[in-house]
Amino acid sequence: MTPPIRVLLVDDQELIRLGFRLVLEAEADVSVVGEAADGDEAVRAVAAHAPDVVLMDIRMPRTDGIAATRSIVAAYPATRVLVLTTFDLDEYAVGALDAGASGFLLKDAQRSELTAAIRAVHRGDAVLAPSVTRRLIDRLHAAPPAAPHPSSSDDPTTELTDREREVFVAIAQGMNNAEIAHHLYLSESTVKTHVGRVLAKIGARDRVHAVILAHRHRLVDASAPLPSDGDGWSAI
């Protein structure tokens, strides 16, 4: 039997943590292993409980969610961080993604969206609010362009095969595995294998990081529309 996804809840409001706990503990494949009320407590709790996924609030006293995310990602790369915020216009959410979070979720998300997002982040995918994804991409393209002929050490695609580069670009365009399979006329199992190899070769911790790298190196058009999963989310 597959072990449940170990989740750590981080929020400065006890009632919100309680609400998330009640929702998640009703899921057979999810286990809440701990709670924290601020970023400092979150880092200590990750060290103590080794969660698979951290459900991380952004605005908290003392150490906020961005700083905590950066510390957790650096020290515990196997732990994924799914950030939370009240408003999708919250620039802190973009900062958290820059800091290494693997996903973004609104606090008013439906129960099914919350559990689906946790499962997606755990398996290495991500489900992001489209407006946040767009702001992140716009920010990357507003930065000074990379050198026209980057060295092999700077170019994340150097070791990719032609097919893997196609998969990389498709990931950056927001396609999920099923969409990539349809686009490239491949089976989903083959796409899954390619995605794993792409992430390993470019040194990306997950698909969100791959999107950031692709747009930073101008491998995709910043104006390209982001696909949606039908529920108002970008499916990555």
Score class of each variant (00 low, 15 high):
residue 74 A to P: 06
residue 173 Q to T: 12
residue 20 F to P: 01
residue 61 P to L: 04
residue 49 H to M: 12
residue 208 V to C: 08
residue 9 L to I: 12
residue 168 F to K: 02
residue 172 A to L: 06
residue 193 T to F: 11
residue 212 I to E: 09
residue 58 I to P: 00
residue 86 T to Y: 09
residue 225 P to D: 13
residue 14 E to G: 10
residue 122 H to G: 05
residue 74 A to T: 11
residue 9 L to E: 03
residue 7 V to M: 00
residue 21 R to L: 07
residue 21 R to S: 14
residue 5 I to W: 01
residue 177 N to D: 11
residue 157 T to Y: 03
residue 60 M to I: 01
residue 73 V to I: 15
residue 188 E to Y: 07
residue 56 M to C: 05
residue 39 G to P: 00
residue 94 V to R: 00
residue 159 E to W: 10
residue 233 W to Q: 14
residue 203 G to L: 06
residue 126 A to F: 02
residue 230 G to Y: 14
residue 101 A to D: 02
residue 16 I to W: 02
residue 43 V to G: 03
residue 61 P to K: 07
residue 125 D to K: 14
residue 39 G to Y: 03
residue 156 P to R: 02
residue 7 V to R: 00
residue 166 E to Q: 15
residue 209 H to W: 04
residue 107 K to R: 12
residue 134 R to D: 04
residue 30 V to H: 02
residue 148 P to V: 05
residue 182 H to D: 15
residue 7 V to H: 00
residue 19 G to S: 14
residue 21 R to N: 10
residue 85 T to G: 09
residue 53 V to F: 00
residue 147 A to L: 10
residue 121 V to P: 02
residue 119 R to A: 07
residue 195 V to L: 09
residue 152 S to D: 14
residue 165 R to V: 08
residue 143 A to M: 14
residue 11 D to Q: 03
residue 45 A to C: 04
residue 190 T to R: 14
residue 3 P to H: 09
residue 97 L to C: 05
residue 115 T to M: 08
residue 142 A to F: 07
residue 19 G to F: 04
residue 153 S to V: 12
residue 174 G to C: 07
residue 58 I to C: 06
residue 219 L to D: 05
residue 160 L to E: 06
residue 188 E to I: 11
residue 1 M to W: 03
residue 60 M to P: 01
residue 30 V to R: 00
residue 84 L to I: 03
residue 157 T to K: 02
residue 199 L to Y: 05
residue 176 N to C: 12
residue 28 A to E: 14
residue 180 I to Q: 00
residue 11 D to T: 00
residue 171 I to W: 03
residue 64 D to I: 01
residue 33 V to C: 10
residue 118 I to A: 04
residue 113 E to S: 08
residue 167 V to M: 08
residue 139 R to I: 04
residue 128 L to I: 13
residue 1 M to K: 05
residue 220 V to L: 11
residue 6 R to K: 12
residue 18 L to K: 15
residue 138 D to N: 14
residue 1 M to Y: 06
residue 63 T to D: 01
residue 184 L to N: 11
residue 194 H to R: 13
residue 104 F to W: 07
residue 147 A to T: 11
residue 37 A to P: 01
